[in-house]
Design a protein around this nucleic acid. Structure first.
Lengths: 152, 152
DNA sequence: ATAAAACCTCAAGCTAGGTTGAGGTAAAGG
DNA sequence: CCTTTACCTCAACCTAGCTTGAGGTTTTAT
């Protein structure tokens, strides 16, 4: 096992984030700590993994709230095991696949649409995001999908 | 040609956004309008296309500032032609391809890493986002790419 | 033993991307 | 003509996601 506890400054430095960000994440319930005799925060090493996941998730546009929800699958009392993280990982993969598919749709869509000749406004789905023309949701389905959520 | 001018309410309704959002976009320089005799806003129909593009772009996490930069390629004095939009479209495609590739990397990376056995913290790139261990940037390159920008 | 570095709390501030509301004017319908 | 609906400006407010700073305590290094 690695060392049993990390100070806030050490975690911040290791993760390349500010101490204030750690305070903020703790306040938001994304990470947790205990206090030493002098009321200073101490962290278990698994906080590093959590932060790495938070940062990776944010890069793909997932909100802290969604990340927090995903973290609910992790055990409260004990340090998460490899298996615990694998469960979360699999959910992220599903979500990433969905996002990738979304982007691919959008790209293909723009290819055919932003640069297309249908400036008439009666046929171009870009002009009809609510699918008001009843064209079977081509525009609506692609552009108005609800945000992808984690189902962990 | 379709009608020559649109009122703010009509544009808002057509695009499924609030009037205040149109005011806001105008203030930010993303769209423009002229005023009628009674000082009310009037829009050229191409504003619909701009708004459609703004909304599509936001869904993939592009900031208004980046969108504004992309719009700089559009002509100021005349209504954008199909060709003008095609130029912009091609730039977006490049960017979308890059984002898709990024997500694919991240997905594969998480597959091998979040759920992996390298909890030792000395080898797992998730723990080493700054690539402090000199592992040739696998973590750093994937996780720390700068935001993709439009070069229009 | 003391000085410096690290930590604490709490409040305020900041950027992005809007929304809401007050108070007033313009346009459209019967 | 008169009422209703649409529009105007401007200022304040809101959420997310942090950062900054003041004023005070704890830990660490010399």
């Amino acid at each position: 096992m690695a060392e049993a506890s990390w100070s806030v400054g050490r975690v911040a430095k290791r993760c390349g984030i500010k101490i204030s960000t750690l305070h903020f994440y703790e306040e938001k319930g994304l990470i947790n700590s205990w206090r030493n005799a002098g009321k200073q925060r101490r962290y278990k090493p698994d906080v590093l993994r959590r932060i790495a996941v938070i940062k990776a998730a944010q890069k793909v546009g997932i909100s802290l709230e969604e990340i927090k929800q995903a973290f609910l699958s992790l055990p409260d009392k004990r340090t998460p095991t490899i298996e615990d993280w694998q469960v979360l990982s699999q959910n992220w993969q599903v979500m990433l696949d969905a996002r990738i598919a979304y982007l691919q749709n959008l790209r293909d869509y723009l290819t055919g649409c932003i640069g297309c000749g249908c400036l008439s406004m009666t046929k171009c789905p870009l002009y009809n995001p609510e699918d008001v023309l009843g064209k079977d949701g081509v525009g609506a389905v692609i552009l108005d999908k609800p945000a992808i959520t984690l189902t962990t």
